[in-house]
Design a protein around this nucleic acid. Structure first.
Length: 210
DNA sequence: CGGCCGATCCACT
DNA sequence: GTGGATCGGCCGA
């Protein structure tokens, strides 16, 4: 089955204006189907974003910036939208977030899964597998490993030439998107119950993409 | 400076 | 479904 995505769009970065929206939950939804692209000099790797979570900055107890907290780690979250916030989780996983909103507003979207599109050979190599499938790039730690994203890259400009997000004319229909609570944030009190996670249904991905 | 623990993953049962 | 791996950020002393 032919994969229905527009390969010619892969170098066309999303505009700065896209990232500057203060509607971080809306952006988390809009990022589904966009292509997360990485080129570290070894070749282009890209995957369609299939799962996201919104972190609503200073008012969200699940956010690292809750209460307006500024530390060396969270400093980048206060940038104007369009840079990467990447941090180390559990001592071994680099988790990739898109900083969004206007400057001073520490909103971010965690990318939790991708559908592998480009650079499959490189992903295989990084993952130590003989072939790569969607299951191997679903999970925030796994997708970073596949794409070569490391927490030392936090602050990377998403309009630059190392990490960017492209519109490749894919948009999962609402009926294929499940909206749920976020994962692993039980400590966040009432905010743990907010519907801030967006998941492109796995079966629907298959029927849409092959 | 010490201790706790996390926006996870995998192997094993 | 449980536990171990593994380490930087954060907070309190």
């Amino acid at each position: 089955m032919e994969i229905a995505w527009d390969r010619s769009g892969i170098r066309q970065r999303l505009n700065k204006d896209f990232y500057l929206s203060d509607d971080v939950v809306g952006l988390a939804r809009e990022l589904l189907g966009k292509a997360l692209c990485v080129d570290l000099g070894e070749g282009l790797c890209a995957g369609l974003i299939t799962e996201t979570e919104a972190y609503a900055g200073a008012t969200d107890r699940a956010s690292h910036a809750y209460g307006g907290r500024r530390t060396e780690r969270t400093r980048v979250m206060y940038s104007a939208g369009g840079v990467a916030y990447i941090y180390l989780c559990y001592g071994m996983h680099s988790l990739f977030n898109v900083v969004t909103g206007s400057e001073g507003t520490p909103h971010a979207v965690l990318v939790r899964g991708i559908w592998p599109l480009e650079g499959l050979g490189l992903m295989q190599q990084r993952l130590g597998r003989s072939r790569v499938e969607a299951a191997h790039t679903r999970g925030p730690g796994k997708l970073s490993k596949a794409l070569g994203i490391h927490h030392s890259m936090t602050g990377t400009d998403l309009l630059g030439n190392r990490i960017w997000i492209a519109d490749v004319r894919v948009r999962p229909p609402d009926k294929s998107v499940r909206v749920t609570t976020r994962i692993g944030i039980d400590y966040a009190g009432d905010d743990a119950g907010r519907p801030y996670r967006f998941v492109w249904d796995t079966e629907d991905q298959r029927s849409f993409l092959g």
